[in-house]
Design a protein around this nucleic acid. Structure first.
Length: 485
DNA sequence: CTATGGCACGGATT
DNA sequence: AATCCGTGCCATAG
C-alpha cells in the first residue's frame, strides 16, 4: 500500500494494520479518545505515561502542551507551515470558544460529549417512567438534522404497541426540553411550542398563535395583508406579530446548534458553525501578512501512549494458560500505537498541503476558497483517494479567526461562487432574478446555469426575487422561517 | 410570458 | 459502488 512509502520506519503492513489504520483515520478527535480509552481499559499491555514528548521532534516536553522547540522553528515561512501533533490536555475542559463567542455554555458542553438525542434525553430522563425511555429514545434518534421529527407518530406508536395519545404525551415532554420545540413534526408546531413556553415568562402578541396555526404559509411568504383579512386584523398588527416571531422563535430547533458537520451548510452563513472539538487548530505565528501558520493536529490525550515495558517483560514468564492471551494483547497494543502514529502522520501531511493551497481562504474567508478536490490532493500526496476521504470526514478545523469549520469545507466546490452570489444580493438595489444574478456572476468569471443559481441561492437561504423586498435587512430568523415552506 | 421549484439524468467525486 | 452536483426539461405561480 502506498501509505508505507511515507512511513519507512513501520514494518510491512498486514491486513490488520490496514484495517485499523483506516478506521482510526476516519475517527474524529472525540471518537478517537473514546477508542483509546477503551483500549487502555481493556488491554493491560497499553499504558499512558505522563511523560510527554513532542511527536515531531521527540523532545520531552516540560509544562506546555505545545512543543516550544517546534513551534519556534526559525526557518518556517508562509510556504512551509509548521505542522505538528499536539497532545491537548484541555480536551476535557474544552469549551469550543477560542476567540469566538459562545451563545450558551450548555450547548457547547453538550456538543462535546453527546449529540442532540443524548442531550435531550439527559434533560428529561428523570421525568420519564423507565418503560417509556426506549420509546423516547426511538423518537429522539429519528430526528432529522433540523431537530424535527419526520417519522409519523402513528408508526412509532404501532411499533411499540402503545396508544397514540401516550406517544403524544411523551412528545410533549420532549418538545419542552431544550432546544424548545425539538421533536415537533413540523416547523409550525415547533413555533407553537416555543410561543407557549415564552408566554409563561413574558407577554406575547395576541393572536400570534392563531397566526401561526392558520396562516403559516401566508406568514412565511410575508403576505401580511392577506393574513390580516383571514384573521380579521389590521395589517399593522400582523406585521408586529411577524416581527415578534422572527425575533424570538426559530422553526428548526436542532439547526441552530447541531446539524451534521458535513452536510449542514445552513448554519455556515450565520457564523454559527457546529461546536465540535477541532481535530486541527490553525493559528498564525504573528500578525504579518506572510506569517507562517501553526497547525496543531490535536491528539485528545494528555501524555504518551505506549506499550508497558513491564508487561513486555512479564510476558517471558507468563503462566501457560495466559500466554496466548497476553501475546495477543501485546500485538494489539503495538498495532494501536503504530496505527495511531500513522493516522497522525497522514493528517499532518494532509494539513501541510491544505494550508498552503487554501492559505487565502484561511486568512481571508469564504470568497477565497479554491475549488480543490480530494482526488487531486490524493495524487499530490501519493495516497489513495479513500485515504483522503477518511482523513477529512467528520473532522473539524479551527481557523485563526476562531471559527470551527468542517474539514470538508476545504473541498467545497461552490463556496466561492455562493459567496459572490451572496455579495451580489447584498448589494442589489432591486431584487434581481436568478437569470440576472447569473449574468452578473458570469461577469466575475463564474459561468453557471440559471438553474444552478437558484440552487445556490436557496442553499444560502436567500429568497426568490419576488419575495425579496428591496434591500431592507431582515432578521435571520425570519429568513429561515420563510425558507421552511 | 417570466421566474422558479421539482424531478431526474449523467458525469464527476468520494 | 454509492453519492453528490450541475443542468435541462417541465409544471406551476405570478
Amino acid at each position: 500500500m502506498l501509505v508505507q512509502r511515507h512511513s519507512p520506519s513501520l514494518r510491512p503492513l498486514t491486513t490488520a494494520h490496514l484495517a485499523q489504520t483506516m478506521t482510526l483515520l476516519g475517527l474524529s478527535a472525540l471518537e478517537l479518545r473514546q477508542k483509546i480509552e477503551s483500549a487502555l481499559a481493556s488491554n493491560p499491555a497499553l499504558e499512558l505515561v505522563d511523560e510527554r514528548r513532542c511527536p515531531t521532534c521527540r523532545r520531552v516536553l516540560a509544562g506546555s502542551s505545545t512543543c516550544p522547540f517546534c513551534s519556534r522553528l526559525p526557518t518556517s515561512s508562509a510556504d512551509e507551515p509548521i505542522v505538528f501533533v499536539s497532545a491537548r490536555e484541555d480536551f476535557q475542559n474544552f469549551n469550543g470558544t477560542g476567540s469566538r463567542e459562545m451563545p450558551e455554555d450548555n450547548y457547547a458542553q453538550a456538543a462535546l460529549h453527546e449529540d442532540l438525542p443524548h442531550f435531550v434525553m439527559r434533560q428529561i430522563a428523570s421525568e420519564l417512567e423507565p418503560e417509556d425511555r426506549p420509546i423516547v429514545a426511538h423518537i429522539l434518534t429519528s430526528l432529522d438534522e433540523d431537530g424535527l421529527l419526520s417519522v409519523p407518530l402513528v408508526e412509532i406508536a404501532r411499533y411499540h404497541h402503545i396508544s397514540l395519545s401516550r406517544i403524544e404525551e411523551l412528545l410533549r415532554i420532549i418538545q419542552h426540553a431544550d432546544p424548545i420545540g425539538v421533536g415537533s413534526p413540523s416547523p409550525q408546531e415547533a413555533l407553537l411550542v416555543q410561543l407557549e413556553v415564552l408566554a409563561e415568562t413574558r407577554p406575547v402578541p395576541a393572536m400570534a398563535a392563531e397566526a401561526i396555526k392558520q396562516g403559516m404559509d401566508l406568514l412565511s411568504r410575508h403576505r401580511y395583508s392577506e393574513l390580516g383579512q383571514l384573521l380579521g386584523l389590521p395589517t399593522a398588527q400582523i406585521t408586529e406579530i411577524a416581527r415578534f416571531i422572527g425575533e424570538n422563535l426559530y422553526p428548526f430547533p436542532g439547526r441552530f446548534h447541531w446539524g451534521d458537520v458535513s452536510l449542514n451548510r445552513q448554519n455556515q452563513k450565520t457564523n454559527q458553525y457546529s461546536f465540535h472539538y477541532p481535530d486541527v487548530i490553525i493559528s498564525r505565528l504573528n500578525e504579518s501578512e506572510d506569517t507562517p501558520f501553526i497547525v496543531e493536529v490535536a491528539l485528545p490525550l494528555a501524555g504518551t501512549l505506549r506499550i508497558n515495558p513491564l508487561f513486555r517483560e512479564a510476558l517471558q514468564q507468563a503462566p501457560q494458560d495466559k500466554a496466548e492471551q497476553w501475546k495477543s494483547d501485546l500485538e494489539q497494543a503495538a498495532l494501536l500505537v503504530k496505527c495511531l502514529q500513522q493516522r497522525n502522520h497522514t493528517i499532518v501531511r494532509l494539513m501541510q498541503k491544505i494550508t498552503v493551497l487554501q492559505r487565502e481562504f484561511i486568512l481571508h474567508g469564504d470568497a477565497h476558497l479554491l475549488p480543490v478536490t480530494r482526488a487531486t490532493l490524493a495524487k499530490d500526496l501519493e495516497v489513495h483517494e479513500s485515504t483522503i476521504s477518511r482523513a477529512v470526514s467528520g473532522k473539524a478545523v479551527q481557523l485563526p479567526s476562531g471559527h470551527i469549520i468542517p474539514m470538508s469545507m476545504f473541498f467545497d466546490r461552490s463556496l466561492h461562487i455562493r459567496t459572490a452570489l451572496k455579495q451580489i444580493v447584498d448589494q442589489e438595489t432591486k431584487p434581481l432574478s436568478d437569470t440576472e444574478i447569473g449574468s452578473l456572476l458570469a461577469e466575475q468569471g463564474y459561468k453557471v446555469a440559471r438553474r444552478t443559481v437558484a440552487k445556490y441561492r436557496s442553499m444560502e437561504g436567500i429568497l426568490p426575487a419576488h419575495l425579496r423586498q428591496s434591500n431592507r435587512p431582515q432578521s435571520r430568523q425570519s429568513q429561515t422561517l420563510r425558507e421552511a415552506i
